[in-house]
C-alpha cells in the first residue's frame, strides 16, 4: 500500500517521498493530487475512501506526497506552486498514470495535457485570504494587533507563518497573484454534483461515504468512456 517515489527537489536534487497506492497494473491508473495546506489534512481520510472505491471499480490509484507535504521531510517554506506542479508532472509520468483526480488547491498543479477531474477547485487568493484571516483572529484573541497589509508586506519579502504553515516569499506571491483556470483536458466536478456538506469547510476532519462514492463513480465512468 505504501511505497516511495523519487521526487525532484527545488534545489535540483531528488528525495524519496511516500506514495500510497493500490497498484495491480490495471488499465486505468489514477494519480490523486491532494489539496495543499490545511485541507490536505481535512481530506486525507476522504481521499483514502475514494481510492478504496476506485479499487473496487477496477481502477488503480496513487496518492504521492509532494515535498513539504504530509510525511515529507522537506521544509514547507522552500516549496512553491511552480515546483509542486513540476513534481505532479513527474509523478504522472513515473506512475504511468492515465488519469488525474485533483481536489481543491491540488487542481492548480494539474498538467495541461492530462485527462483530469478537478473537484471543487478554489482560487489561490481565497486560500491566502483565509490563512491571513486565521492568523489575524488568533492574534486578536491573544490581545495582539496585526493587520493584513503589514503581514503581507513582511510575507512578500521574507515569508511568513500562517495558521501553522511556513510560506516562503515565492509561495506567498503565487497565492496572491496566480489566476487559476482549468487546463485543457480537465473536467470540473462541482460540489453540487457530489452533494452533502463540503468537507473542506468542516472545522474537524471528517469523511463521507456517499460523497466518496459519487466522486469515484464520476472518475470511473469518465475513464471507461475513453
Amino acid at each position: 500500500m505504501y511505497s516511495t517515489w523519487p521526487c525532484p527537489l527545488h534545489d535540483g536534487g531528488m528525495a524519496d517521498e511516500m506514495v500510497m497506492g493500490a497498484d495491480t497494473r490495471r488499465k486505468r491508473r489514477v494519480l490523486i493530487v491532494a489539496p495543499l495546506l490545511d485541507e490536505a489534512n481535512k481530506f486525507r481520510h476522504q481521499l483514502a475512501e475514494i481510492m478504496r472505491r476506485l479499487d473496487v471499480l477496477g481502477l488503480d490509484s496513487f496518492l504521492p506526497d509532494l515535498p513539504g507535504c504530509n510525511e515529507s521531510l522537506q521544509a514547507h517554506e522552500h516549496q512553491t506552486i511552480e515546483h509542486w506542479r513540476t513534481c505532479v508532472q513527474e509523478a504522472y509520468f513515473q506512475i504511468s498514470a492515465t488519469d488525474i483526480l485533483a481536489v481543491r488547491s491540488g487542481c492548480w498543479l494539474v498538467p495541461t495535457d492530462a485527462r483530469s477531474w478537478l473537484y471543487a477547485p478554489v482560487k489561490p487568493a481565497q486560500v491566502l485570504r483565509s490563512l491571513v484571516r486565521t492568523r489575524l483572529l488568533s492574534a486578536k484573541e491573544a490581545g495582539k494587533q496585526e493587520t493584513a497589509e503589514t503581514l503581507l508586506e513582511t510575507a512578500r519579502h521574507s515569508g511568513i507563518e500562517l495558521a501553522g504553515w511556513s510560506l516562503g516569499p515565492q509561495l506567498v506571491a503565487e497565492l496572491e497573484n496566480a489566476q487559476f483556470s482549468p487546463p485543457p483536458g480537465s473536467q470540473i466536478i462541482e460540489h453540487e454534483m457530489v452533494g452533502g456538506k463540503p468537507l473542506w469547510l468542516r472545522a474537524e476532519n471528517d469523511w463521507d461515504p456517499t460523497q466518496a462514492d459519487a466522486i469515484a463513480t464520476i472518475v470511473s465512468r469518465g475513464a471507461s468512456d475513453k
Partner: peptide, 25 residues
C-alpha cells in the same frame, strides 16, 4: 461550541464566496 476562531475564518471566507461580498478585517 463549533464556532471557534478557525471556524470563524472559514465562515467569513465562505460568506465572501457565496454572497459575493468583501469582508474587511
Amino acid at each position: 461550541p463549533e464556532l471557534d476562531s478557525m471556524a470563524v475564518a472559514g465562515l467569513l471566507t465562505e460568506m465572501e464566496d457565496r454572497l459575493d461580498i468583501v469582508i474587511e478585517d
